[in-house]
Amino acid sequence: MEVRTIKVFTTVDNINLHTQVVDMSMTYGQQFGPTYLDGADVTKIKPHNSHEGKTFYVLPNDDTLRVEAFEYYHTTDPSFLGRYMSALNHTKKWKYPQVNGLTSIKWADNNCYLATALLTLQQIELKFNPPALQDAYYRARAGEAANFCALILAYCNKTVGELGDVRETMSYLFQHANLDSCKRVLNVVCKTCGQQQTTLKGVEAVMYMGTLSYEQFKKGVQIPCTCGKQATKYLVQQESPFVMMSAPPAQYELKHGTFTCASEYTGNYQCGHYKHITSKETLYCIDGALLTKSSEYKGPITDVFYKENSYTTTIK
């Protein structure tokens, strides 16, 4: 009895394709271990004539594949690729409408935090270190965002349907971005203890939790000093293409032309909904596939993004 075979390709990165001759009487799992086709788990399936010449994702289970996976995804987590594939199996079914010149995501599976993050990423200057993220990001900007969303979920250790947080998501993504040249110098002034300067680099240099107003941050924000008295913390120097200011959701007025974009969060910790506000020729609110415009805006804002380049204080 002759062994019926077909020729397929296996890959971990969709760049390096490895030619395989597979036995049609055995499952993919018996031949390769966990195997995925377009995100779908085909591990328990036997090869079919229609699979001839198709590319299958496999887990990096030998040295060659491990090197290829690390170079593309910059992670050695053995569960990463499987999590990416199972997320992709959902995100490829989502709709990605162009809204006001940006790629958004039609609401499904509690994905409003991903839509808000995706919209924000198209408006701030950011370059990702893992080629996987950078490639998928370019495709997302062009309207094909399924891979990018699935990668975000995998890097953030999230599953489809789980509630997510924009600030946490951005923080994970910033860790995989090139923020080497970003720098922030802060000064804390206390009447009792004097003053202390701190220099922050990388992710810490672009994120701040405690106030939404970048102007206020430049002037000074009140913080408790270690001595128990009130101290003032203010920005001395900022070198970065953008800054992200966050605070627990509270009524906040966004003035046209003073910011790049913002995240609105309605609801409580267990259950809520994100919308995205962007400042173009007027203010726009993007909620999944829905767009509304207004000249002014007041609502429960939790993150505001500002364009920056270089700032030095005039406070002496």
Rank of each mutant, 00 (worst) to 15 (best):
K7C: 08
T10L: 11
T10M: 06
V12P: 09
D13S: 06
N16C: 08
L17K: 13
H18G: 07
Q20P: 07
V21D: 13
V22Q: 05
Y28N: 04
Y28D: 05
F32H: 15
P34V: 08
Y36N: 06
L37M: 14
G39D: 10
G39A: 15
D41F: 07
V42K: 10
N49W: 07
S50Q: 12
H51P: 04
E52F: 12
G53E: 14
G53C: 11
T55I: 08
T55F: 08
Y57E: 06
Y57D: 06
V58S: 08
L59C: 15
D62F: 07
T64K: 14
E68N: 14
E71T: 15
Y72P: 06
T75N: 15
T76V: 13
D77L: 06
S79K: 13
S79R: 12
L81K: 06
R83L: 10
S86F: 08
L88W: 13
L88K: 06
L88C: 05
L88I: 07
N89W: 10
H90A: 15
T91H: 03
K92Y: 12
K92M: 14
K92R: 12
W94K: 01
W94P: 04
K95E: 12
Y96E: 04
Y96P: 01
G101K: 06
L102A: 04
T103R: 06
S104W: 02
I105C: 03
W107N: 06
N110E: 03
C112N: 01
T116L: 04
T116E: 03
T120S: 13
T120Y: 01
T120D: 03
Q122P: 04
I124D: 04
L126Q: 02
N129Y: 09
P130N: 06
P131C: 02
A132S: 08
L133V: 03
L133S: 02
Q134D: 09
Y138T: 14
Y138P: 06
Y138F: 10
R139F: 08
E144N: 13
A146K: 07
A146T: 06
C149N: 05
I152V: 11
I152E: 01
I152C: 10
I152M: 13
Y155K: 03
T159E: 13
V160E: 02
G161Q: 03
E162R: 03
D165C: 15
R167N: 03
R167F: 05
R167C: 04
E168N: 09
L173N: 01
A177D: 02
N178V: 07
N178R: 09
N178I: 05
N178F: 05
D180S: 12
K183L: 14
R184P: 01
V185A: 03
C193S: 02
G194L: 02
G194V: 04
Q195V: 12
T198E: 15
L200K: 13
E204S: 09
M207A: 08
M209I: 09
G210S: 02
S213G: 04
S213P: 00
V221S: 05
Q222S: 13
I223A: 12
P224M: 15
P224W: 13
T226Q: 14
C227N: 00
C227W: 02
Q230W: 11
Y234L: 08
Y234M: 11
L235V: 10
Q237Y: 11
P241E: 11
F242G: 00
V243E: 01
M244F: 03
M244P: 00
S246W: 00
S246H: 03
P248K: 14
A250H: 02
Y252F: 14
E253M: 11
L254E: 02
H256W: 14
T258P: 00
T258V: 07
F259T: 00
C261K: 00
T266H: 08
Q270N: 12
T282S: 14
L283T: 05
L283W: 01
Y284Q: 07
I286Y: 07
I286E: 00
I286A: 01
D287K: 00
D287W: 02
G288I: 00
L290Y: 14
T292C: 08
T292E: 09
K293E: 11
S295D: 10
S295M: 11
P300W: 10
P300H: 10
D303L: 02
V304P: 00
V304W: 00
V304G: 00
Y306E: 00
N309S: 07
S310M: 15
S310G: 06
Y311S: 08
T312R: 14
T313L: 11
T313M: 11
I315A: 11
